[in-house]
């Protein structure tokens, strides 16, 4: 597993744990707002980074290469 996958799993677990904490333990409102603003977006992003399809390793170089970077 590469670095991106591992960090995505880690962020997803932390995000879900944060959201569950806010759901189950009724912390003060400002903590709930903070958890929502940070963990809902990071949870969705990390889920996406896990669920997205990755192409074959050998094709990666061709796909990343920009034909023109003179701007």
């Amino acid at each position: 597993m590469d670095k991106l996958k591992i960090s995505s799993y880690l962020i997803l677990i932390i995000s879900i744990a944060g959201i569950l904490y806010a759901l189950l333990f009724n912390p003060p409102p400002w903590i709930v707002y903070g958890i929502s603003i940070i963990f809902i977006p990071t949870g969705i992003l990390s889920f996406g980074l896990i669920s997205m399809k990755r192409g074959p390793k050998k094709d990666e170089e061709d796909k990343n290469r920009e034909p023109f970077i003179g701007y």
Partner: peptide
């Protein structure tokens, strides 16, 4: 969300 994604160099 399930499409192949790469990040440009």
């Amino acid at each position: 969300f399930i499409k192949e994604s790469t990040f440009p160099k």
